[in-house]
């Protein structure tokens, strides 16, 4: 675990000296501010529900950009040789990378707490759905970042990693549509597998353990696969 934190720490430092983190964070917050202002102006409702709902779509693209560098760049620069010959297990490397990106994302969400804060000034929002909404955003973001880590392990090229990440995420986002084609009982399975079917309850103020378990399972599966991909690199 100590090794994981060492790697995560290095990753966070690397984010804060690279322009990508600032550009992505700024874009994320700017878009969120736009949604927030527009929704507030037209709906006159003191809620984060619709803003967060819109941000999930933005997150689809933001997550792979945050993770594209993580393993791809190590492989391109040859620094992966350093990590894999240090007394560190492969999964510690993968988990450290993931935690690094999750920390940056959590910081972005943290800054965006400014919006609900504004709501408490201009109105009287129900804090429960805001808290659960942010928990949902963190879990969804974690799942998307872990998928990004997985695609980053597959290539040496950051752009390829990002594009693969978006494709994988979009496919897993829309997989529920397959359910409409097949009908019951498979439709339930496809709906459960879709990334897009598990965050609405959070935004409404409900934390359903099934949704929590779903996102944690996606994270575990993606990181497990990324570790295996890293291991197979040794066999080439």
């Amino acid at each position: 675990m100590k090794n994981t934190l060492t790697i995560a720490r290095r990753e966070i430092q690397a984010y804060f000296v690279s322009p990508i983190a600032y550009v992505v964070a700024a874009a994320f917050l700017a878009v969120m501010g736009y949604f927030f202002a527009m929704i507030l102006y037209y709906s006159r409702e003191a809620t984060m529900r619709y803003t967060l709902g819109n941000m999930t779509t933005v997150l689809l693209f933001v997550a792979p950009i945050l993770t594209m560098r993580l393993l791809a760049e190590e492989q391109r620069m040859g620094t992966i040789e350093l990590l894999l010959t240090a007394p560190v297990k492969d999964w510690e490397v993968v988990l450290g990378k993931f935690l690094g990106s999750l920390t940056l994302y959590a910081c972005m969400l943290g800054v965006s707490l400014y919006f609900p804060f504004v709501l408490t000034i201009v109105g009287n929002p129900d804090l429960g759905p805001i808290v659960s909404g942010y928990v949902g955003m963190l879990l969804l973001g974690g799942a998307l970042l872990s998928l990004g880590v997985l695609t980053s392990s597959l290539t040496q090229n950051q752009i390829v990693s990002a594009v693969l990440g978006v494709v994988l995420i979009v496919l897993m986002w829309l997989v529920s549509a397959l359910g409409d084609v097949t009908g019951a009982p498979l439709s339930g399975v496809f709906r459960y597998l879709a990334l897009s079917e598990h965050f609405y309850d959070f935004f409404k103020g409900v934390i359903d353990t099934r949704d929590v378990i779903y996102y944690l399972s996606v994270i575990a599966a993606a990181l497990f696969l990324a570790t295996r991909v890293l291991e197979t690199r040794r066999w080439r």
Binding site: K2, I7, V17, L82
Partner: peptide, 26 residues
């Protein structure tokens, strides 16, 4: 181990890099 292509992180300082490696190696 010193690999053929020296594995360095260009965005780190010399001290920061050695500190990272020292932590990894316990």
């Amino acid at each position: 181990y010193l690999p053929e292509t020296v594995p360095l992180y260009p965005e780190m300082t010399v001290w920061g890099y050695l500190d990272f490696m020292a932590r990894l190696r316990g």
